[in-house]
Amino acid sequence: MTVVIQMLINGILLGSVYALLGVGMSMIFGIVRLTNLAHGEFIIIGAYGSTLLSLALGVDPILTLVITVPVMFIAGVLIQTVLINRVMLQGSEPALLVTFGLSIILKDALLLLFTADARHANVPYSTATIRLPAGLHIAVLDLVVFAISLATILILTLFLRYTYMGRAIRATSDDTAAASLMGVSVRRTYGIAMGIAMATAAVAGLGVGMRWTFYPSSGGDYLLIAFGVVVIGGMGSIPGTLVAGLIFGLAQVIGGANYGMLISYLLLILMLAVRPQGLFSK
């Protein structure tokens, strides 16, 4: 029994990070109708940003978000408005292939810049645990990352629900032409959406860097987890994203180091075959 509860706890903690990995991709999928194959590399860029800045400045990695989030937001806006909006004129496939091109460029650029060495964002509490009754325990690090993930998703939800820009983003994802009749510039909204997606990737990168070691080539793994979260959660659905993250987290915890990924992939293929539109989309 204790083992099962411990697994559930670990699964939930892990699931929150997975949800964070997927939330930006889900937004772009739902709003811009684009599969951003570079999302994994965006996350790894965030991880490098936080790790290296915290080393250079000698501060807690969490504080580096003050720099990485705005920088990556601006980068996202630029990538969308300068590059992707232009190719979207030609249809969705060229846009998909452009993000694919971006992904391989970024991966090798990271390799050139930072070598193939494993990296990790160090925090003083990296080995601390909280002991609970009945032999259960929670790693402080996991709990911190859990809190960061949930806070990010909560802020995003509030933003989408209660601000003009958030409503404009939702309206654009429903009906682009009708949104433009309300005075919304679709291209600008796409730019902001990509900026936000990249800002969430910055936070997700911090989480990745704090919990695991990462390499320039790690982007692909996280992209597939993010995609899995999008598929199971349904595009653009935040509650769906949370549940999907949890499902993946549990699959990973149950499968362990050897079979966790395999189980996740099989789950994903099964999901795609049975409900290609996601569990939570209408």
Binding site: R167, R170, D174, A177, A179, L181, M182, V184
Partner: peptide, 19 residues
């Protein structure tokens, strides 16, 4: 009509005051 179907009535109306 082309309402934003996944948004509430009031959110649809508030979208109208986007300018």
């Amino acid at each position: 009509s082309r309402c934003f179907v996944r948004m509430s009535v009031e959110d649809n109306l508030i979208m109208g005051s986007y300018p």
